[in-house]
């Protein structure tokens, strides 16, 4: 496994909702090496402010060299990305970090909240084919229905069973997506989750209590993504520090000190 610094070219930018943009980039070296759960560091401007690259989960990677990122506009960096037009160049470093571990041969459940849904589509498309049809359950949560409409269809096209939850009740369950998990847990051999920390904490605890293996993709502010700055620290189990960029971003739920 190795990473590349690659000047990608924007092929398309699709506005999926008020919050989400999908950036399709031509990045053949990174796309070829990418595994579900890995991330890239993207330059978010052409000047010194903002200075640092931003980490993004790989949303999809294709054999034709296309690499997709799901971008939620939250600050200047992501705002810049949302304004890119086809033909623009975007410097990427990747693929980085430790991805999901597809070790199970049984049914799996994916739990995604908000922008945390991003890496789960790549994961769903790489599940072993014997467990793909009807044994992949996907629980998706977001603020409102528009964020989920396109993504729900794409998970369904992969053969996944999808259930949704929205904060405003405009689609599916009215409440947290984690509230859908207890009903989906029986029979699940493994759970993969990415989303807000509070959501993942609930998911991890439910899985640990049920004795079901769970992997969670975490995020943290990071300067390099390469294991050099040591800035992207989280509290690990056993009073340790773990670095999201190298030890993660995907952690086994038992490796993380879930708080509070």
């Amino acid at each position: 496994m190795r990473e590349y610094q690659e000047n990608s070219v924007v092929q398309a930018i699709d506005r999926l909702s008020d919050s989400f943009h999908r950036l399709t980039l031509f990045a053949p070296r990174i796309a070829a090496a990418a595994r579900p759960g890995q991330f890239v560091m993207a330059s978010c401007g052409t000047t010194l402010d903002p200075l640092l690259r931003r980490p993004f989960s790989i949303h999809q990677a294709f054999a034709d060299g296309a690499l997709e990122l799901l971008v939620k506009v939250i600050g200047r960096g992501t705002s810049y990305l949302s304004t890119l037009r086809p033909g623009a160049e975007l410097s990427l470093i990747g693929p980085l970090g430790r991805g999901f571990h597809l070790t199970t041969h049984g049914p799996v459940t994916l739990v995604g909240g908000g922008i945390g849904i991003a890496p789960l589509l790549f994961l769903a498309s790489h599940l072993p084919t014997d467990s793909k049809i009807s044994t992949c359950t996907v629980l998706l949560g977001s603020r409102t229905n528009t964020d989920l409409l396109v993504l729900t269809e794409e998970f369904k096209q992969l053969g996944c069973q999808v259930r949704t939850a929205t904060d405003d009740g405009s689609l599916g369950h009215h409440g947290f997506v984690s509230e859908l998990l207890p009903a989906a847990l029986p029979g699940a051999h493994m759970v993969f989750t990415c989303g807000p920390h509070a959501m993942m904490t609930t998911v991890a605890r439910l899985c640990l209590d049920a004795g079901i293996r769970c992997e969670a993709s975490l995020e943290a502010h990071m300067a390099c993504g390469l294991g050099a700055c040591l800035g992207c620290t989280i509290h690990g189990a056993g009073n340790t520090y773990r670095h999201v960029c190298k030890h993660g971003p995907v952690f086994d739920a038992t490796e993380v000190a879930w708080t509070p």
Binding site: D49, M222, L230, C232, T233
Partner: peptide
């Protein structure tokens, strides 16, 4: 072991 997080923050330039 280093300091608790958060450990880095971006500022102007």
């Amino acid at each position: 072991p280093g300091n608790p997080p958060p450990r880095v923050v971006e500022t102007a330039c």
